[in-house]
Design a protein around this nucleic acid. Structure first.
Lengths: 260, 260
DNA sequence: TTCAGCAATATCATAATATGATACTTCACA
DNA sequence: TGTGAAGTATCATATTATGATATTGCTGAA
């Protein structure tokens, strides 16, 4: 079978993780066959691995359909994550204040490679389900939060990100033109925040401020989403931005190292 | 080494999962030695497994302290979980409405064995960090949500739960007396909701309504927490309960099977 | 600076463990 | 009742994980 590098690598464990990652927003319930297909693993291997994950409580098994689903243990992992991320503990009370103050949806996003990931979300109004779920990963270049963070990078890195980081179409308005993304980020460099419209969801305006530590480089951002039917970018800048910026400034990451 | 049952069980995978579970609220950053100690695994095994988890992106490694931490992938798993749990999608918009309406913290709890697990939390006021984190598991008998659910069980099962399910002290007011818990649950049977005081946090009042499907048996509950300094149980029942109950009734689980 | 002590990392012969082909069973649907 | 697809069980084989040991690198004390 495929030889995975050296003796410090446990292949069976890696394969088991592939089963877990086979589940996503469109694959919520998978049979053995589905799992084999999605992971590219042998039928017997999937059988054994899935059985192990089931016994260990990582997968629920529907007794009638025999299909597997993520178990509550997946939420327990998120629980452990939250305690390990100091920034979240720092930020949560201030985000609550902000969301109550603004009456609009407030998010905490962290940089995760070339994507952002929503770590905390406080919905204040009905929105799409996808806008309420934590753990969502989006291309950093396409989000106000990502642009706000990239704007804090040194120029060469900034340019490298603009040139090479991935893009993906979400709405007809999603910008795939890297030059206009560069303009947007340059504006963020000057102004200290980023605004975007309709990138992820049509008629949605996003505004974000970076959370910068002593180094000046941001690994996280506070973001606010509002409806373009009720707001204009100008009003967002006038009414939302000041408090958003105060909140971002008040959340200073404690001195310890950050994930990269 | 320890022989784990049959040939349908992949020991290495199970061991890898043990590493993941070694992280919790008080163990947020673990060295190889820590991991070996907490999992009871051999030093070499831990080295290989942790290395694998790191390569696969499940553990972040601090380059200077060499210690491991949960990675963003743990949130991605939560993300996948949310899409797989139909109840959450059903409930979220209604919970948002409710929290805006009440101006108080609202939670969605599901039954997970003999514990409840918080699946969705909408904090409206500053609270303890622990009260904002999803994935928290608590003994069902000690929470208003758990009692509300148990109250929907057939009498024998109810009694079995009251007699055997675990209890744990969280505050000086946490009830360890199963007779008084039985009283509380019996009240919930009659009234259709449960109220508790100071069980998890001092000076906190919790009120919960079960979410019942066609079978009449609940696997989830909507719960609201308020400060005992500002509320009395009577006022909670008069002012919060009606809207809480409406919300719980409006969230009917779709017909598919539930995790057990 | 040197040294001691500890933890992380690398190596390797061994056999235990995962492998995957195959056969059996169950279930859904015709 | 029959057919096919999917889940389940078995087993001989050698690949893969094992864990003892050696090496390296780091931290703090002398």
């Amino acid at each position: 079978m495929e030889k995975k590098q050296n003796t410090l690598f446990v292949g069976s464990l890696a394969k088991g993780l592939r089963l877990l990652r086979a589940f996503d927003e469109t694959h919520t319930e998978l049979s053995l066959g589905d799992l084999a297909q999605r992971t590219g693993l042998d039928k017997s291997a999937v059988q054994r691995l899935a059985n192990t994950l089931h016994i260990e409580g990582m997968l629920d098994k529907d007794p009638i359909t025999r299909r597997f689903r993520p178990s509550h243990a997946w939420l327990e992992l998120a629980y452990a994550y939250y305690w390990s991320d100091q920034l979240v503990g720092q930020a949560i009370p201030k985000l609550i204040d902000l969301s109550q103050d603004l009456g609009e949806t407030v998010n905490l996003a962290e940089l995760s490679g070339d994507h952002i990931i929503y770590v905390s979300r406080l919905p204040c109004k009905r929105t799409y389900f996808a806008a309420t779920v934590i753990g969502r990963r989006l291309p950093a270049l396409s989000t106000s939060g990502g642009r706000a963070m990239i704007a804090t990078f040194p120029p060469e890195e900034r340019e490298h990100a603009i040139r090479t980081w991935p893009l993906k179409v979400f709405t007809p308005q999603t910008t795939l033109d890297r030059d206009s993304i560069r303009d947007s980020i340059n504006t963020a460099v000057r102004k200290g925040f980023a605004i975007s419209s309709g990138q992820m969801i049509l008629s949605e305006i996003g505004v974000a401020c970076p959370i910068t530590g002593p180094s000046g480089r941001a690994f996280a951002a506070v973001q606010c989403s509002v409806s373009a039917h009720l707001w204009t970018p100008e009003r967002v800048e006038a009414e939302i931005l000041p408090r958003l910026q105060d909140t971002a400034n008040a959340i200073s990451p404690s001195s310890q190292a950050h994930r990269h």
